[in-house]
Amino acid sequence: MPRRRVLAETTRLTPAEAAEVLGLSRPFTVRLLDAGAIPSDRLPDGRHRLVRLADVLAFQERRDRRSEGRRRVAEAAEEAGLPY
């Protein structure tokens, strides 16, 4: 079982740490940051950025809701005998 950390929502994470929280790869998480799916702030050097834990958790919640919605649609289609 993976270890869980308890952090304040104001905590700032690196993209690698955000990826770990989400259970995603760092490159995929960076693409999400680039696309604006998860807000991030660039540091003054312009190369590095930080992500608020609250924004990572909000993204995860949206992702979980979409997944649950798709699951419910698939179940309803199956119960109705419709192809899905």
Rank of each mutant, 00 (worst) to 15 (best):
D45C: 09
G46R: 11
L33Y: 07
A76H: 05
T11D: 04
G69R: 12
T29L: 03
Q60K: 15
R52H: 13
L50Q: 14
E17H: 05
L53V: 10
D34E: 15
R66F: 02
R62V: 07
R42C: 08
S67R: 15
V21A: 07
L43D: 14
P2Y: 06
L24E: 10
D34L: 12
R62F: 06
E75Q: 13
L33C: 08
T11G: 03
R70P: 00
R26L: 02
M1A: 12
L22E: 04
H48T: 12
R65A: 12
L22Q: 06
R63E: 15
F59G: 00
L7T: 04
V51F: 01
E78R: 15
D55G: 02
R72Q: 11
E75A: 13
E68T: 07
F28Q: 12
R12F: 12
T10G: 15
P44C: 09
P2V: 11
E75C: 02
Y84E: 10
R26S: 10
G46C: 08
F59V: 01
G69Y: 05
F28P: 01
A18N: 02
E17K: 09
L32Y: 04
Q60Y: 02
L53C: 12
L32C: 05
E68Q: 10
L24N: 07
E78K: 14
F59M: 01
Q60W: 01
R63A: 13
R71D: 04
A37T: 06
V6C: 10
L33S: 06
G23F: 06
P2I: 08
L43E: 14
E20A: 13
E17N: 03
R5A: 13
R5S: 10
S25N: 10
A74Q: 13
